[in-house]
Amino acid sequence: MSTPPKNSSKNSSLPTPFSLRLTFEERTTLEQSAGNRPLGAYIRSKLFGGTEAPRKRRSRTRKPLKDEKALGELLGKLGESRLASNVNQLAKAANSGSLPVTPDTEKALQNACDDVRTMRILLMQALGYYSSEV
């Protein structure tokens, strides 16, 4: 049985990391197989059959979303909307005192509020706080 390799630093007793180069396709396949698990943990479990001793350092694990469809809808809504730009223009006009209070302005503000409300509901659904029927 050999001893683990040491770092070049005299004070460190940690083993050096092992890098593995993967093609884009190999990594994509591994990430799909891993699902929501961290890729390193998935590879270790496959290599060592889940019998590896627990690691001292805990890494962040990805929290699975309750409704990935709702998140996709939200991201699509953000991509198609010019909400940020429109609200920014309205805020600048209001700050400078040049915002005309017309039916068009009221409609634009109401549309912005509706968009924000829709995106909030989609986000809450994706995080599992609302059911899909809301």
Rank of each mutant, 00 (worst) to 15 (best):
L99P: 01
T51V: 14
V87C: 01
N88C: 09
R62T: 14
R62M: 12
R58A: 12
K46F: 04
S96D: 12
R60S: 12
R82I: 09
K56W: 11
D67C: 06
L78N: 05
I43A: 01
R57D: 10
N86D: 09
A53G: 10
K69W: 11
S81W: 02
E80R: 15
Q89S: 07
T61A: 14
N95C: 05
R82W: 08
F48P: 00
G50V: 04
G40D: 07
S96Q: 11
R82D: 13
G40T: 10
P64M: 08
K92T: 06
P100A: 13
R60P: 09
S45G: 04
K56I: 15
S45C: 07
A93W: 01
L74T: 02
R58K: 15
R60Y: 11
Q89P: 00
R55T: 14
P100W: 05
R55D: 11
P54G: 07
P54F: 06
K69R: 15
L75Y: 03
L39A: 03
E52V: 11
P64G: 07
V101T: 10
G72D: 07
L75F: 07
T61C: 13
L47T: 05
L83Q: 03
L75W: 04
Y42G: 01
K56V: 15
L71V: 03
S85H: 15
P64Y: 03
S98V: 13
E73P: 01
S45R: 02
S59H: 14
E52R: 12
R57Q: 15
P100V: 10
